[in-house]
Write a protein that binds this DNA or RNA. Sequence first.
DNA 1: TCGGAAAGCGCC
DNA 2: AAAGGGCGCTTTCCGA
Length: 548
Amino acid sequence: MFLAVSSPARGIVEVVELDARGGETARERMPEAAFPEWARGREADHPRWVWADTRRWYPALLDAGVRVERCVDLRMCRLILRNAAAASGTELARSPRDRWDAPAHVPAASGALFELEEPEPDDDPAAELLRQRAAIADSGTPGRLSLLTAADSVGALVAIELEHAGLPWDAARHDRILVEVLGERMPGGRPARMEALVGRIRAALEDPQANPDSPPTLLRSLQRAGLRVSSTSRWELAGLEHPVIEPLLAYKKLARLFTANGWAWLDEWVHDGRFRPVYVPAGVVTGRWASDGGGALQLPRQVRGAVVADPGWKLVVADAAQLEPRVLAAMSRDAAMARAGRAHDLYQGMVDAGAVETRSQAKYGMLGAIYGGTTGEAGRMRPRIERAFPRAMAFVEAAARAGEAGEQVSTWLGRTSPRGRDAGYDETRSDDERARELRDGRARGRFTRNFVVQGTAAEWALCWMGALRRMLWQLGGGDAADAVLTARPHLVFFLHDELIVHAPAGLADAVAEAMRASAAEAGRILFGEVPVDFAVTVAVVDSYAEAK
DNA sequence: TCGGAAAGCGCC
DNA sequence: AAAGGGCGCTTTCCGA
């Protein structure tokens, strides 16, 4: 059963009930303020809530203590279906662009002028649901596209739940880390250790004006001091012999922490013991999540010690080991690579199988295969990887050739890469233009090569997350109405191939088991019975820094 | 004065 | 530590 939710007028909610075949069975209007209580009553029937945008509707439900099991995020699903090659022959794909193709709802910043504007009424979500279901049914791959749209929708729910719960964050510990690494905080100036490093940099360059915060002026200072550099980046500086190098590299490291995750970040993003970033599910073309504020997906290792479970609770941290190579093995049905993945450490499995000599060779060879690396260790390992895993390599090579030819590629479930720029064919091109096109084409090949693997890994992660979410709910826990999620084991963090659950200590082992079981389930849901293990490393800890 | 681009580096 | 893919964030620069 579907419950299609919209707001036909400001402050009014309309819900259309549809049966499994899409026929309307009931229709109801209510004031928006009454909707959460109404939804709480209906959730017992396990409906699939259908709405334009999860971020528009779900926060208020969670605030009222209403957790929903399933939804269809129509705008996310429209984007998938609009672009999916498998659905290109459907009516939806041919229809002109409309408001369902518009970017997702962005909540107005408090105090902004936008709040005064009358919101546009939603278009009819029931009609859009039927259009999308027809497109999926008429596509060449209805099973995969319905799984993909369901997976993205559950991701949309999880994103809002993560923001609702927040990541437990000990601001005092964070402050101690900052003081230890950066030195005492100086009002209006650089922290003590950073300032000391600036002194050493200026002395080493014999330039009292040298400013390591400004790349152009720093570059000139370095060149005046006789260093032959063309940029101030770390990789270029690291190879040089000069007294300025050591303090300068140290300064860069500290400056990064200070500006990106220092006291200002703490003030802005951590409140009442929780870090609440903004997630953007499927915000990346490959289907990976992005973030929009807070930088949750770039949380540096240095500050992970500030992620601390509440008293009596634990953090259960799970990481999918070598996810992308395993996904590639499953997609390409490469039996030899799957065998290497029987080992918990796939790279060690490659060594044991005799494909390469060292774990490091395995790692860089594999990453080169997936990213299209041709130089360094990745390039040297290429022939061996091709010999050992011919099907896997043929799979990514095919994706790369498609990209070079200007074609689109799709993930396992059918998310399709964006169209490349149409280069066209022009006999009159100059050599420069030809060279540029060749370079662009190769870049495009590396993109499509990576797209199929990264995008399918993102799909695996969504399936993992969805299965885990269901298992966590079944584990139960407290039932406080004002803490429907947070009184029981709940997800608090997601980072591409890593999940963190905050759980009462007594349930931590059960959660750890659920994380393994859901990973195995994700593999089965996506790929059926393939002989590929999706190994996860699970740690029950008090602080995120203790995990690996 | 403002906003976009670029540099640089954090994450996977 | 090394290059390939995808990002976000901060600061500085620079042109309109």
